[in-house]
Simulated assay, not measured.
Amino acid sequence: MDPFKTIGLFAITAVAEIVGCYLPYLWLRDRAGVWVLVPAAVSLAAFVWLLSLHPQAAGRTYAAYGSIYVAMALVWLWAVDGIRPDRWDVLGASLALGGMAIIAFAPRP
């Protein structure tokens, strides 16, 4: 699979997981009604389905996906929570993404 398609699929997967977890969080904090649990469940089901589309072995997929999740969580922090990531957030996400690139795109037989 094309590296850009793989990263894009990881990013969409991360958004589905974040939304699926964020909506129940809002409900638990009394910031949203119980109705948000329905789209949360749909989002988490989409997350599982999207994760199954990744072409690599499950262990490598989960390891590589984790770094994309870290980066997308920081984007969410900025876009939704209104908190701009600091240089340490950016450094940590960059290191995680570098590790992901090694795991996901290393030449293998």
Rank of each mutant, 00 (worst) to 15 (best):
S43N: 09
S67G: 10
L50H: 09
L37Q: 06
I83W: 03
V48N: 05
I68A: 12
V42M: 14
L51P: 02
V70T: 10
G59V: 11
A73T: 13
Y62G: 07
L44Y: 15
L44D: 05
L77G: 00
R29I: 04
A73C: 08
D81V: 00
I83Q: 12
H54I: 11
W76M: 07
H54R: 09
D81M: 08
A63C: 07
P85I: 06
L50C: 14
G66H: 03
R60Q: 13
L53Y: 08
Y69P: 06
V75C: 04
A63K: 08
Q56V: 05
I83G: 01
W49M: 14
Y69S: 04
A79L: 14
D81F: 00
L26A: 06
H54N: 12
A64H: 02
L50P: 02
L28Q: 11
A40K: 07
V75E: 06
S52N: 12
W27C: 01
R84E: 10
S52G: 12
V38R: 06
R29F: 07
M72A: 14
A40D: 06
I68S: 11
Y69E: 11
I68Q: 05
V38K: 04
Q56M: 13
D81Y: 00
L28K: 10
Y65L: 14
L37T: 08
Y69D: 07
A45N: 05
L37D: 05
V42C: 15
M72W: 04
Q56D: 13
R60Y: 14
G82F: 08
A63D: 08
P55G: 15
A46Q: 06
D81L: 13
D81P: 05
A57Y: 05
V34K: 12
A79T: 04
G59A: 13
A64G: 15
A40L: 11
L44M: 14
R31F: 09
L77M: 13
R84P: 02
A58D: 02
A73N: 06
P85Q: 02
G82H: 05
D81E: 15
R29H: 09
P55D: 14
L28G: 08
V70H: 03
V36C: 11
A71P: 02
S67H: 07
W78G: 00
A41N: 10
T61A: 13
V70A: 10
L44R: 08
A46Y: 09
I83P: 01
A32D: 04
